[in-house]
Amino acid sequence: MIRTENLTKTFALRKNQPPIQAVQNLTLEVKEGEVFGFLGPNGAGKTTTVRMLAALIRPTSGSAFINQFQIGRDDTQIRRSIGILTETPGMYERLSAEKNLSIYANLYDVADVKGQVEKYLRMLGLWNRRMDEVGSFSKGMRQKLAIARALLHEPRVLFLDEPTSGLDPEAAKLVRDFIEELKSEGRTIFLCTHNLDEADRLCDRIGIFKSRLIAVDTPANLRQRLFGRRVVFHLRALNPEWVETLRRFEFVKEVTPVDNRLLVRLDEPEQYNPVLIRKLVECGADLQFVGEIRHSLEDIYLQTLQAEE
């Protein structure tokens, strides 16, 4: 669906200043129906990447294919086959919501303009406000309208640039739920976001990007790769001998006692947890809870960027 090979974008600034390499050798593949989270700090080149993939700006070198169309060669077909939510909604504020969508439906050559406009206005809960000027809309409503605009022509590939940025929690949840709905329809979504919790919940894979792609994998694999997996055993009371008992197992990589808890690092807790639980019970431990310590995506993100620096 989306494939890039050594995609690079350099911006020449003023005469005496060196050019800025906004995107360096980006090689990536996003499969059909996948939600791909593109994470990176401000100025990392995320928007530049989306603009290149949406055939809005040309790469300096490298190539990219969207729906088999090559950027730089099949730009009109690419623009026709993708939907894009830009960083700012950019609606025509003096016009009504319905008029805004009708304009874009016509520009995307939609056959049933009225039908599609109505479908998405209803789907996003804006039907009753369809005749109101967009200037009177809240930020969340504008964002929803911009999402509707990106979907009018039923694109299979969507680029969403910060879809929940600046929204209140309720509006952000509405947008996130809608993205989940789009995901369930099998659309390919390229999601640029700063909201790591959102990326963790929505994305099948994430790429951490800062001018170049630093890491790319599923959130679970990235967690394991960076932190391994850790299990916590909550005990009524901790006997220091049990630490040594657990360390004797080959599959245990590390055991750390903390208060009445034992933190155990190991690779496959699903397989080895029962062994450890049996052993602790045999030793006379009163087990209260057992759980996995799950590192947040924020930890992964910060760790990855720190390692890069």
Partner: peptide
């Protein structure tokens, strides 16, 4: 100024 140019240019319009 209204930031509507980018979504407009992202359509298939030449």
């Amino acid at each position: 100024t209204t930031r509507s140019l980018e979504p407009l240019l992202a359509t298939p319009i030449s």
